[in-house]
Design a binder for these strands. Sequence first.
DNA 1: CGATAGTGAGACAGAAATGTCGCAGATGCT
DNA 2: AGCATCTGCGACATTTCTGTCTCACTATCG
Lengths: 200, 200
Amino acid sequence: MEIDREELLRGVANALTSNPGAPTGEIAAAANVSRATLHRVLGGREELVEATYGWMLEQCGRVFDRAGIDHEPVLEAFDRLIEDSYPLAQSLWLLIATPELERVPELLARLEAQDQRLERFFVRGQEEGLFRRDLPPRWLTYSLGSQVMSAWYMVDDGYAGARDVPRLVRAAVLEGVLADAAGSAAETPGSAGAPRPKES
Amino acid sequence: MEIDREELLRGVANALTSNPGAPTGEIAAAANVSRATLHRVLGGREELVEATYGWMLEQCGRVFDRAGIDHEPVLEAFDRLIEDSYPLAQSLWLLIATPELERVPELLARLEAQDQRLERFFVRGQEEGLFRRDLPPRWLTYSLGSQVMSAWYMVDDGYAGARDVPRLVRAAVLEGVLADAAGSAAETPGSAGAPRPKES
DNA sequence: CGATAGTGAGACAGAAATGTCGCAGATGCT
DNA sequence: AGCATCTGCGACATTTCTGTCTCACTATCG
């Protein structure tokens, strides 16, 4: 039976994120293929990691597309984004564990493009008055990314279920951990056309 | 000249965090020590990583102590905590890149103890009404930890200075990224003050 | 000044991981 | 059935990393 490249990449991605330094043998086993096949399809270890990270970036791009972070209403896009946040978490995970990835020009460029895309999203939110302006948009992207990552980490640790991730991330990222947030919880896309605040 | 174990561990820690998979030769070089000495003082690669992580946990413990997260007023302790957040960031960093660490019983126990200590801190804040109660305290610890980590990551990337970290983390963790937070920023010593100088 | 302790440099063997190959077996198509 | 394609298995050579040892050098102390 032929190997589904997508499925293979998924398996490799999981193996790599759960143990970034694993030898190719373990990676292959985790992906249910032989070491030979793994090598035939994705190349040597270095190429393999790069290919996997590239695939993750693709996934993130697709999530961004689906969420419509470029043009759709900011808050709604935000909710769709965190609804499907695993690819983002996974890519950050691998990136942290494998700094060499930043030394691959092509990947670095794509990563930087992704970051800027997300940053523009936050800038848009700031201009609309939804996001606070006293923090650099870059920091907002880091804040979101890191919390998405840790949310899935918590799931992995067994302290939460996958279904809780969007809610947890939404609350912590948007409103923070202080109690007095005073119902600042923004209306979510379900309710009727709630007026989106325009800056005055 | 004799080797200062502390200094050596610092160097190794930096080398490991900036490249978790580095061979011992690189690590030694980064710490300005010969590979032989590194091995003499900290043992083989595995022991080396474990010793370093253990040292990081110690650092975190000390920071927690100094901040007084166990008994001091919650918000003040919080500020002192994020004022000296680098050890926490570094330990999380290494932990993510080296999941095998969790397989060392002693380290796992200490890690779990640290987590619970921080969790109790948040529980205390919740009971005081300072932190929101609709989020699991465990998640609050993950949220803080991840953002501390990403803040220093951002510094490393050159998008912020080390002195900005406390402010960025404080704002994002406590209040979130929404604009309307309505000045819920809790008053605290130093919250409005000028940024504190910090070593590079 | 001599002795002691600690470090660095270099070398070397053993272990581990990687890249590669050939061959057998399974699957699917004609 | 016959053929082409792809995979798994096992083996091998090569490279890389690690653990270890020896020896020379330096600093500190008695």
